[in-house]
Design a protein around this nucleic acid. Structure first.
Lengths: 233, 233
DNA sequence: GTTATTAATATGTAGCTACATAATGAAGTC
DNA sequence: GACTTCATTATGTAGCTACATATTAATAAC
C-alpha cells in the first residue's frame, strides 16, 4: 500500500520542517503557497495552515499575507519557561517546603519601584520580605512590593501563614507579567537569610505583574547559590 | 444594534479569560462544554476550540477529552524567551558589535560535557572560546564545545572571521535545545576576558543543541556584569 | 466485590466553503 | 517622476460536517 493514511497536521509540519533542515529550503527562501503544498501532499489547505502556524510560533518561518511564507533568516532560540509557585517547585523536586515571613511594613515606595510599575505618581505599597526553604535550607529570599491600592484585600491576610506568592497567584490573576533575570553578588541584606557569604553570586528572578495597567506586585526573588532555571521542554 | 458582528476567536478567548479573572469560574472549576459556550455566544464550536487552545497554551486552563475544561488550580507563570544570535542582540540595542576569537583547539572532552550531550561514550569535539563585544566593551564570553562527529564542516570554517554562534545557527539548524540559566562568580578564566574583577556575579546562559539525538554544541555564555535577560512580551 | 466489556461524551482533527485582510504591484492620473 | 487607485494574491478566520480519540461511566460477567 503506497497510499498513506490521511496526513495529520503534525505530519505536514514535520515534513516541512525536515525540508528546511535538509536545506531544500534555506534561510530566506520562500516556501510554496499553502494551497500548493496541500495539493502536493494531498491534504486540505487548513491542515497546511495548522502546520505552518506551529512553525511560525516556533520561530522557524515567517508568514505574511500576500507575501507568503519564508524561512527565517535569523532563527531565534525560542524557549518557554514555566515558573510555578515556589512551594510547588520545591515539592516537585521531592523536597520539603518551608516558609518564613521575615517582615512586613508600609515603607515608602522607592522611585525604582514606581518606575518598574510604569506609573508616574507614587502609590501606597506594602513591603514583604520572606524566605522559602527547601529541605529546611534557604532556597529563595523574596523582597516584594505589593500595591495596596490595587490589592487592598492583602491587608487582611496573615502572611506569616500563607506566602504572598501563593495568596496572590490564587486570588489575583494578572493580565500582564514582566520577567527579568540577572546575577548579583550577595550583600549584607541578602547573604544573611540565604545563609551564604557576602559576595556569592545569586540568580535573581524579578517579576512585575499588573491587572490592566494597575500594578499588583514587584518581587525580586534572590535564589540560593547553585539555583538553576531550566526550560520546560 | 445590540446584535454584534460575528465573534472572532480572540473575542471569545477574551470573554472566557475575563470570566476567569472576575471569578465567575474559579481555579479548579469546570467550564461548560465548547458546544454550549458556542451556542451561548452564538458562534461555531471551532471558534471556541481555537480560543480554548490559546488559553490552554497560555497555561490558564487544562483540557482533557471527555473530562472537559478546567481552570488550572496552580497557575504557572509561562514566559517566552527569544534568544537571538549575539550580533543581532547587540545591534538591536543600537550598539556596535564586535567579535574576537580567543582560542580554538581539539581538547579532550570533559566528562561533564559528555553527560550534558546525553551520550555514554566520549566523542570528538572542538573547543572554541570567543568574546563578543558591544560598543568595544566585553559583552559575552563564550566557552563552546562543538561535536565534530556531528558537524565536521565546522573544521573548514575560519572562526576568527565568523563566530561559531553565527555559523552554526545559519548552517546547522537543531531539532532540540536545552537551556539553563544560573549565576556564578567570575574566576581567573572568566574575569579577564570580561574585564571585570574576580568574584563579580555573572549570569550564565548555557545552551545544548542536538539534531535528533546527535549532539551539536554546548555553549556556556558568560555575560558581562549588569546583563539582564528579559521576556519577549 | 472485582474485572472486563461496552456505551456515552467532550475534546481533537481533517476537509470543505466562503469571505476577510494585508500587502504588493500594476495601471492610471496629475 | 510622484502620487493615487485598484486589482491581485497569499494568508487568516468563521462556519459547517464528519469522524477520531481518550476517558469516564455504566453494565455485564465471573
Amino acid at each position: 500500500m503506497t497510499q498513506r493514511a490521511r496526513l495529520s497536521w503534525e505530519d505536514v509540519r514535520d515534513q516541512i520542517k525536515a525540508s528546511i533542515l535538509d536545506r531544500t529550503y534555506s534561510p530566506g527562501d520562500k516556501l510554496p503557497r499553502d494551497a500548493d503544498i496541500a495539493d502536493q501532499l494531498g491534504c486540505a489547505r487548513s491542515t497546511v495552515q495548522r502546520a505552518m502556524r506551529d512553525l511560525s510560533d516556533a520561530g522557524l518561518v515567517e508568514r505574511k499575507r500576500k507575501g507568503g511564507t519564508h524561512v527565517r533568516v535569523d532563527p531565534v532560540t525560542r524557549a518557554t519557561l514555566d515558573i510555578p509557585i515556589t512551594r510547588r517547585e520545591v515539592e516537585k523536586r521531592g523536597s520539603v517546603y518551608g516558609y518564613h515571613l521575615i517582615d512586613q511594613n508600609h515603607a515608602e515606595i522607592p522611585r525604582e519601584v514606581v518606575g518598574k510599575f510604569e506609573q508616574s505618581e507614587p502609590m501606597q505599597v506594602m513591603r514583604v520580605r520572606a524566605l522559602h526553604l527547601a529541605d529546611h535550607k534557604p532556597h529563595i529570599y523574596e523582597d516584594r512590593w505589593i500595591c495596596t491600592d490595587t490589592v487592598p484585600e492583602i491587608l487582611g491576610i496573615d502572611l506569616s501563614r500563607e506566602s504572598a506568592n501563593e495568596w496572590l497567584v490564587r486570588n489575583k490573576p494578572y493580565t500582564r507579567c514582566d520577567l527579568r533575570f540577572y546575577a548579583i553578588s550577595a550583600n549584607s541584606e541578602t547573604a544573611g537569610p540565604l545563609d551564604t557569604e557576602i559576595g556569592s553570586a545569586l540568580l535573581v528572578i524579578e517579576r512585575t505583574t499588573w491587572i490592566g495597567t494597575a500594578p499588583i506586585t514587584l518581587v525580586k526573588a534572590y535564589t540560593a547559590p547553585g539555583y538553576e532555571l531550566l526550560t520546560s521542554n
